[in-house]
Amino acid sequence: MTKGNDFMQHQTRRDFLGDSAKVCGAVSLGALTERGTAQAVPPAMSICRWGGVAEGADAVKTIATRLTEEAVKAVGGMASYVRQGDVVWIKPNIGWNRTPEQAANTNPDVVATLVRLCLEAGAKQVKVGDRPCHPADEAYKNSGIEAAARAAGAEVVLVDENRFRDTALGGERLKNWLLYPEIFESDVIIDVPIVKHHSLATATMCMKNLMGVAGGNRGQLHQDLPNCLADLTMFLKPKLCVLDAVRVMTAHGPVGGSLDDVKQLNVIAAGRDIVALDAFGAALLGHDPTQIETVKRGHERGLGEIDYKKIVPNEMSVT
């Protein structure tokens, strides 16, 4: 319930200070970091590249699992984010009725590894769920996430259209929107997107992935995607983001379908700085992050650092 309390504080401060975006951003950034810093501050971001050899049918699984483990370890380990008895909501991209090879959804082994790490860190309950664009049954099943997460010990939750609640976000653009209470009432939200091409945002990553928490006619949000995503991020405050770039979709996103548009990069980045992670993801797809509106606005709204190199990510090669 701490999240709800923080939100209330955020509201009152915000009302008090007025509508200044900068001040608001600073405050929320404070709220973002104040709880993750128990002891020495761990690195805000890690980038893990696969440097080993993996062969056979399970090659991708091995790569995804190892990279996830190391990326989380490199930002202080899961215990820095998940406390004993926490309820964790892992929010992958399960938007589409597509197979893992088509790289439209988050890699199931990344999700499964995160579930395991959370449970090892003492989480009371780990829930996994997303509001898909395609029929939920099909997307959950064919993405491989339902089976993998369940096997790892998570509760796979169907995001029910009837359980969204009109929620005051108090954002710059989004004052109210239908959000899923079970997600934002969790103690910890872990945002686990896959790096993909997107025709409007150019690239879709951590901030865009939070759209899955929103209900209703969310197509509307595309009319001002940068501000809407910043508002959502400010409200939801994911404690940890894990960027899956084991496979990336380079064109015809976010649905894709053709294996010609999929590239296997074998990279996973993790951290607390959602903007830096998105900037890094955009760079992976060959874009200049400063040219991407959503990342730029995230930086301007004080959600993180667009020049991810400036925060000195913990980079490493994993075998």
């Binding site: 025709s199 197509g219 595309h222 995607l225 649905v255 379908g257």
Partner: peptide, 15 residues
């Protein structure tokens, strides 16, 4: 206004 919702959802691999 910008809006790409139709294109975004189009399932044809090459859109």
């Amino acid at each position: 206004r910008s809006c790409i919702v139709c294109e975004e959802h189009c399932p044809i691999p090459t859109k």
